[in-house]
Design a binder for these strands. Structure first.
Lengths: 250, 250
DNA sequence: GGGGATTTGTCCGTATGTATT
DNA sequence: TAATACATACGGACAAATCCC
């Protein structure tokens, strides 16, 4: 009940990001419960990433606004439990991005177009740095959703994107030498699609994007088809567990 | 760390739905921590709906497989925090369902077609019972996603559907007298779309479904446009809080 | 229906690790 | 370097709920 009260305050915006909660003794008094009970509530909120708790002087429980990252982990765990293959998630991303490109090509706004062209430019600038290049590529896909006038779909896209990043292995695969040529070609496609969107060439833009996404999935499939990697499932736990094993020394 | 160990076991399927965990004393011994510490871990997993804890003889912590319902609440809270309007969620559902219908009309399988026709029949049978009729209507939409060969999208659809149900108000609006005629007409549309899918009339099926979804959104908008209801945001907390207030007697 | 056994819920007191001043 | 403020952890005790006989 205490966790729910605090959580409600955070979601409603009464408690803002970075706000410091009173110390445990004060909270114990305010809610009229004992310390162990209060701590169970704080632990719940910490696990849900609504609080960030540190110990020491003049610190304590700090309010953390829910981020896409934390929501993505929950969804990712669910997908993992459902034994969903990673390729399936990529296909879902495709289904979400196609109508977004259509919408954007039909009626973009000047401000959005500026941001698209800035993103393309940013990709060009980091072309030498391989890590940054891939991050910029992911950002470009997200930007398209963000500009496409549906916040729910943008959030769903970000969640699934987050799941793939948390799962991590696909991104790792992109770093493999055999993938580099393809990834570099992707940047040019991004440039082209922006040009088509600007010209309101709806069908051409959609078609190019569809081919682009199919190429991305096929690239991952090809790299994935190494022995032992077939039908790789979503796996967001393995990475968390590395840290765990370390701290538990098992 | 303890929560993560147990959670990992549940997600990997080592602990199955309904399994009973040992009692607290045993767990304390097994993990080598004190009781308050263990309880914080159990509290985390309970809040994430991985455990269902009851007190009394011969019971205790029971493993609960993550359900769409629990995942939906998590996503719902995030949407609420982001101040997303309910209509926006409906539009996202539209974007997800359209390609699903296209895929289904292009190549359905005999088994899927059987289930579609059974769903239509089920809707016809509960036509008199208003509550059951609406539930059957929702099930029909879910079935389309389930048959459309992408599990991730089906899960996303179920999540958003769950958010709307948790938010609850839109469903309530469907019960209003002014909506009943429209909702009844929806059942006929479901029947028609199955016929078109069976006949592989792809574009016609997609077009009908697009109109159907637009009608649904418009219906909700019309009812919603009563004073004080404009741009209603996703609100999954209010319902939870009713229970809270009750138990806290505030 | 009642009593005993089992299990979680809650609380207190105390000691310890850690960050800031 | 010392003092302070904070979370972390432990052990023991009792209360409350549930189940079984």
């Amino acid at each position: 009940l205490i966790a729910e009260r605090l959580r409600s305050q955070i979601i409603r915006g009464e408690l803002e990001d970075g706000d410091l909660l009173p110390n445990e003794a004060t909270l114990v008094e305010r809610f009229g419960v004992s310390r162990p009970t209060l701590r169970e509530a704080l632990r719940i909120l910490e696990s849900e990433r609504f609080l960030k708790i540190t110990r020491g002087s003049r610190v304590g429980a700090q309010v953390a606004t829910p981020s896409e990252h934390s929501a993505a982990r929950y969804v990712g765990r669910y997908l993992q439990f459902k034994r969903v293959p990673v390729i399936d998630v990529h296909e879902a991303l495709t289904a979400i991005e196609i109508p977004a490109v259509r919408e954007l090509a039909s009626n973009w706004k000047p401000d959005g177009m500026r941001r698209l062209e800035a993103a393309v430019l940013a990709e060009k600038n980091v072309d030498a740095d391989w890590t940054a290049a891939i991050a910029a590529g992911i950002d470009f896909h997200r930007l398209i959703l963000e500009l496409a006038e549906n916040r729910t779909l943008a959030i769903m896209h970000a969640l699934l994107d987050g799941v793939i990043i948390a799962s991590g292995r696909d991104i790792g695969r992109m770093f493999q030498p055999q993938a580099q040529t393809s990834v570099r070609r992707f940047r040019v496609v991004h440039e082209d699609v922006v040009r088509l969107i600007r010209a309101h060439e709806v069908e051409e833009a959609v078609d190019l994007w569809r081919r682009h996404l199919r190429a991305k999935v096929r690239l991952l499939e090809n790299i994935q088809s190494m022995p032992g990697h077939d039908h790789a499932l979503v796996d967001v736990l393995s990475r968390e567990e590395i840290g765990t094993a370390d701290r538990l020394s098992i």
